[in-house]
């Protein structure tokens, strides 16, 4: 399954990822850092990673094997 890792130190809170995420996963938190509020809707498309000018987001993927939950 895909998920996003946000490097809060690198995130400038510019909001580009919040604006462009196709499945509306991201918001800015109270400290104005990107935050995956709807992480279950992440489709692993890497759009946020490409659109981030500060390399503050990495999309991670976990493979699944048959039988694994």
């Amino acid at each position: 399954m895909p998920w996003v890792e946000i490097n809060k130190a690198a995130c400038t809170g510019c909001g580009v990822c919040v604006e462009t995420c196709p499945t509306d996963v991201l918001r800015l938190d109270t400290e104005l850092k990107a935050f995956a509020v709807y992480e279950a809707d992440c489709q692993g498309c890497f759009i946020c990673q490409w659109d981030c000018a500060f390399e503050a987001i990495i999309v991670r993927i976990r493979s699944h094997q048959p039988g694994e939950s």
Binding site: M1, P22, T23, D24, A40, D41, Q43, H64, Q65, P66, G67, E68, S69
Partner: peptide, 12 residues
């Protein structure tokens, strides 16, 4: 599908 935590329709 069995064993996957995927399987949710992207909203778009």
């Amino acid at each position: 599908w069995p064993g996957s935590t995927l399987g949710y329709m992207p909203i778009d």
